[in-house]
Deep mutational scan, measured.
Amino acid sequence: DFYRCHTCNTTDRNAICVNCIKKCHQGHDVEFIRHDRFFCDCGAGT
């Protein structure tokens, strides 16, 4: 499962994972996106 962060203006080409929300995007306006054509390269392994 992935998310888009409207606060940081993520686009259709990138998304964030749950670990990104916990570490970098906590309290931001995020939108849940189940699956799409992207991956998270944060290195958290999710």
Rank of each mutant, 00 (worst) to 15 (best):
A15R: 07
D41T: 07
R37A: 14
T7Y: 03
C20N: 02
N9K: 13
D29R: 10
T46P: 06
F39I: 06
Q26S: 10
G45L: 10
C24R: 12
F39C: 13
R34L: 10
D12P: 08
Y3P: 04
N19E: 12
D1I: 15
K22F: 13
C17A: 03
G45K: 08
I33Q: 12
G27S: 07
F39P: 13
R37K: 15
D1L: 02
C42M: 02
C42W: 00
D36T: 10
T10M: 15
N19W: 04
D41H: 06
H25P: 01
K23M: 03
C24N: 07
I16H: 06
I16N: 03
I16V: 12
E31M: 03
A44S: 12
F38V: 13
A44P: 09
K22N: 10
C17T: 03
Y3N: 07
G45T: 05
K22L: 06
Y3T: 04
Q26G: 09
N19R: 11
G45R: 08
C8P: 01
E31F: 01
H28N: 01
H35C: 15
F2I: 15
H35D: 15
V18M: 12
F32T: 13
K23W: 05
K23Q: 09
Q26L: 09
R37T: 10
T7C: 02
F39R: 15
C8Q: 01
Q26W: 06
Y3I: 03
N14A: 05
C8H: 00
I21F: 08
G43Y: 12
K22Y: 06
N9H: 14
C24W: 09
N14R: 09
H25I: 00
H6K: 05
D36C: 10
D29Y: 03
I21W: 06
D1S: 14
K23L: 10
C40N: 07
I16C: 04
I16F: 13
V30N: 01
Y3C: 06
E31Y: 03
C40D: 05
C42T: 04
F32S: 15
H25R: 01
D12M: 10
I16P: 00
K22R: 11
R37F: 06
C17L: 01
F39Q: 08
F32P: 15
D41C: 14
V30H: 05
C5P: 02
C17H: 00
H25D: 00
C17E: 01
N9T: 10
D29M: 05
Y3K: 01
H35N: 06
F2N: 06
D41A: 09
G27F: 04
R4F: 14
D1W: 02
C20W: 00
D36S: 10
Y3V: 03
C40G: 02
N14H: 07
R4P: 00
T46S: 15
G43D: 08
Q26V: 14
C42Y: 00
V30K: 04
D36I: 04
C20I: 00
A15T: 10
D1Q: 05
C40R: 03
C42G: 04
C20T: 01
H28E: 04
D41Y: 04
C8W: 01
G27K: 07
A15K: 05
I33C: 11
R37N: 10
D29I: 06
R34C: 12
A44D: 15
K22M: 04
T7K: 05
C24E: 08
H25L: 00
D29F: 05
H28D: 02
G45S: 12
N9P: 11
N9C: 10
D12S: 10
F32M: 14
N14E: 06
K22A: 13
C42I: 02
C5Y: 01
C17D: 02
H35G: 15
T46V: 03
D36P: 06
D12N: 13
D12R: 07
V18N: 15
T11Q: 14
F2W: 11
F2L: 10
N9D: 10
K23A: 08
R13I: 12
F2V: 03
R34M: 06
